[in-house]
C-alpha cells in the first residue's frame, strides 16, 4: 500500500493547537475532535482507530502517522495495535463486502461451501478484493448469529440461512451493477 498525500507536517509540540491535516481533508478534523473527546489519552487508541476506520474505510500509513502524532505515541505502537486486531484493515475494501461467518455453527452447516463457491466465482481468496474493486470477500470468526446459521453479512446486513446458490445470486447482482 502507498499513500499519495503529503506526510504530516504538524510538529509534535503544536499538538492540539493546529487542527486537522495538511491535506485539508475534513475527515481528519472529525477524527481529531474524537481524540479530543478522549482527552488524547493513550488508552483510547483502539477507540480512535475504530473511528478512523469508520471515517476512511481502512487505515493507511499516513492516517496511522497522523494518529501517532496527535496521541503522542510512537508510530510502532500505533502500527502494532492496528495490525494486531483482525477488525482493522490496512488495505482498501471493495465497493461491496461479503462477510461469510465461519463460526462453528455456520461451519457445520456448510459455510465452507459458501466461501468456496464465492472464491471460485470471483477467482479471489477470502480476504481479497476483486481486480475491478467491486467485491471484497471476507470471513468472520463468529458473528453470534448461530441460531440462523449459516449467516452471511452483505454490506453490513446480516442475512440468515444462506446457501452457495443464494450467495452467488447476491454476488452476481453486485458484479453486474
Amino acid at each position: 500500500m502507498s499513500s499519495n498525500s503529503t506526510p504530516v507536517e504538524t510538529p509534535p509540540a503544536k499538538n492540539g493547537t493546529q487542527a486537522g491535516h495538511a491535506s485539508g481533508d475534513k475527515r481528519f478534523k472529525i477524527l481529531e475532535v474524537h481524540m479530543k473527546k478522549h482527552q488524547f489519552r493513550h488508552d483510547a487508541l483502539i477507540e480512535v482507530l475504530h473511528k478512523a476506520q469508520e471515517l476512511f474505510g481502512y487505515l493507511e500509513d499516513d492516517l496511522l502517522l497522523f494518529i501517532s502524532h496527535k496521541l503522542k505515541l510512537p508510530p510502532s505502537r500505533v502500527y502494532g495495535v492496528a495490525t494486531f486486531y483482525h477488525f482493522f484493515t490496512l488495505k482498501p475494501q471493495g465497493q461491496h463486502t461479503c462477510v461469510v461467518c465461519m463460526g462453528t455453527a455456520c461451519y457445520v452447516k456448510g459455510a465452507d461451501q459458501v466461501v468456496e463457491a464465492v472464491q471460485n466465482e470471483l477467482k479471489i481468496k477470502a480476504g481479497e478484493t476483486t481486480a475491478d474493486n467491486k467485491v471484497s470477500l471476507l470471513t468472520a470468526r463468529c458473528i453470534g448469529a448461530c441460531g440462523i446459521a449459516p449467516a452471511v453479512v452483505y454490506d453490513g446486513t446480516v442475512t440468515p440461512r444462506q446457501t452457495p446458490a443464494s450467495t452467488l445470486e447476491k454476488i452476481n447482482q453486485w458484479v453486474k451493477s
Partner: peptide
C-alpha cells in the same frame, strides 16, 4: 477489535489500556 485472545483476562486489560 476482533482478537479471540482478548477474552483472557490479562490480555483483555491490555486491550482496555489501548495496547496489543
Amino acid at each position: 477489535a476482533g482478537a479471540f485472545v482478548c477474552g483472557e483476562e490479562t490480555a483483555l486489560m491490555m486491550s482496555v489500556e489501548g495496547k496489543r
